[in-house]
Amino acid sequence: MNLFQFRSAVTLALLAFAVSAFGAEHVVAQKGKAFSVKKLSVKLGDSVKFVNEDPFSHNIFSLSDAKSFDLGSYGVGLSKTVVFDKPGTVEIECAVHPDMKMIVEVSK
């Protein structure tokens, strides 16, 4: 194995470690006062990026045992990211728009 091959192997190994250690990122849009998906399955350690594609503010919060949080309000074009670090069912809501709800299933 020459030096180039060795460096490539190390880089690939580091990338694989990073993906497994930090998880994948999923993107959910908030548009038309609705989430782009009603249900999302993710792995433990994955993150979900919520992107506000509406011309007004949104909010993200959850009261579920697997993940309780409130990310506050955020405006047009902005996003908030949540890392799911505990397995279970997480019900996501928007405080500004009570009919906006979705579920994130976090599996091991």
């Binding site: 919060f61 009261l63 309780s68 949080f69 409130d70 405080a95 500004v96 009570p98």
Partner: peptide, 22 residues
């Protein structure tokens, strides 16, 4: 009932179901 009760509670005393987050 539609917008405020989640945080401020049915009795408007600040004890809504989401109050524990704050």
């Amino acid at each position: 009932a539609n917008y405020c009760v989640t945080c401020h509670g049915f009795n408007a005393d600040g004890n809504g179901r989401a109050a524990r987050l704050y």
